[in-house]
């Protein structure tokens, strides 16, 4: 502000102007004292439970530390190097991303079809259907995990009994005990569990399409399938990008399900980053906790997530810009 003013005027104004500015600031602060009082509790919680854990997690990651006492054995990037060269971490890493990706590629399109059917205002019982499809979302994941472990049990579990009964299979399938089937099974349960969320997203998106468009298309002789691909899909594209991002982020933490159904097994086939970290922090196979290593693994993972989110956000921005240009 004052960069262009002649030298000699600085001492005079430097002594005075900030003072009145400060006085003004004090006045403002005093005027808003109750505002500060109201934000204070939240700020204390934010500092203690969000800010500090974030900073501390980064700090811990530079130490070889078992969680006892204060970290003293500084090893620089040693933990990061060890995490990055551990095939077990990358196995868990890929599995976690596979969880998110499966929801985007399978759950989202399926939810869109159901949402389009349910969007018909005249459909009887649409609220009941919507509610029933939504119930798994609000149920406790850990409880669902236990129940599915029972249902999938090879010795008398209901799903195996039914498959045997219909003659589709001759021998019970050990869904959770096989290294080949455990992960697809968990993915299927997870898609079932959170299906209602993208369904609600799509329903909200469908509500933004003016009904006249469909009426006009109908008059022009378009079939339902045609108007789905020519009207619904393009109209939903911008919101679809947001839904993709949300679905991706929402499904990056399958800890509860994995922990209750397979604990990451068999032979780490269903290990995800959260169970990997939990093991190193609280149930170490080596006998002593490795807090620094666990923190480094967490940071590496969240950096990767950040990169994916930025790419997705940029794609969305780019798509929107080129979209308006075309119009």
């Amino acid at each position: 502000m004052g960069y262009g003013t002649p030298q000699q005027s600085i001492p005079a104004s430097a002594g005075k102007a900030p003072l009145s500015k400060r006085a003004e600031l004090f006045k403002q602060i005093k005027k808003h004292r109750y505002h500060y009082l109201f934000v204070l509790p939240m700020l204390v919680f934010f500092a203690a439970f969000t800010l500090w854990p974030m900073i501390a997690s980064w700090y811990y990651s530079f130490f070889n530390w078992d969680g006892i006492g204060w970290p003293t054995d500084f090893i620089g990037l040693g933990n990061f190097r060890e995490v990055a060269s551990d095939p077990g971490f990358w196995n868990a890493f890929m599995n976690t991303f596979l969880f998110a990706l499966t929801h985007v590629l399978i759950q989202m399109p399926l939810a869109l079809i159901v949402a389009v059917i349910l969007n018909n205002q005249f459909l009887s019982g649409r609220n009941v259907y919507r509610l029933l499809l939504f119930v798994p979302v609000i149920s406790t994941t850990a409880v669902i995990g236990v129940i599915f472990s029972i249902l999938l049990n090879p010795l008398g579990g209901a799903i195996n009994e039914m498959l045997l009964g219909t003659g589709l299979i001759n021998e019970p399938i050990n869904f959770l005990g096989s290294t080949a089937l455990a992960l697809p099974t968990l993915l299927a349960v997870s898609v079932w569990k959170s299906f209602g969320t993208p369904m609600i997203y799509w329903l909200a998106g469908l509500q933004t399409i003016p009904g006249e468009l469909f009426e006009a298309a109908k008059i022009d002789g378009a079939s339902k399938v045609q108007s789905f691909f020519r009207i619904t899909v393009p109209m939903l594209a911008p919101i679809g990008l947001v839904i993709t991002l949300l679905t991706f982020i929402n499904n990056l933490d399958p800890f509860d399900l994995v922990r209750t159904m397979t604990e990451g097994g068999p032979v780490k086939a269903t290990d995800v980053v959260q169970t990997y970290i939990f093991r190193y922090a609280f149930e170490p196979e080596s006998g002593s906790s490795r807090y620094g290593f666990a923190s480094a693994a967490g940071i590496l993972f969240s950096l990767a997530v950040l990169v994916v989110v930025i790419i997705q956000a940029l794609t969305g921005k780019y798509a929107r810009r080129s979209g308006t240009k075309g119009a």
């Binding site: 700020l43 854990p53 997690s57 922090a281 666990a294 940071i299």
Partner: peptide
């Protein structure tokens, strides 16, 4: 304050249960 709140949603958190546990 607003900037800090919004930023914290996106910054990589690491494994915050450990410091939380310590706290």
């Amino acid at each position: 304050i607003m900037t800090m709140l919004v930023m914290s949603m996106f910054l990589p958190k690491g494994f915050t249960i450990l410091p939380l546990f310590e706290l």
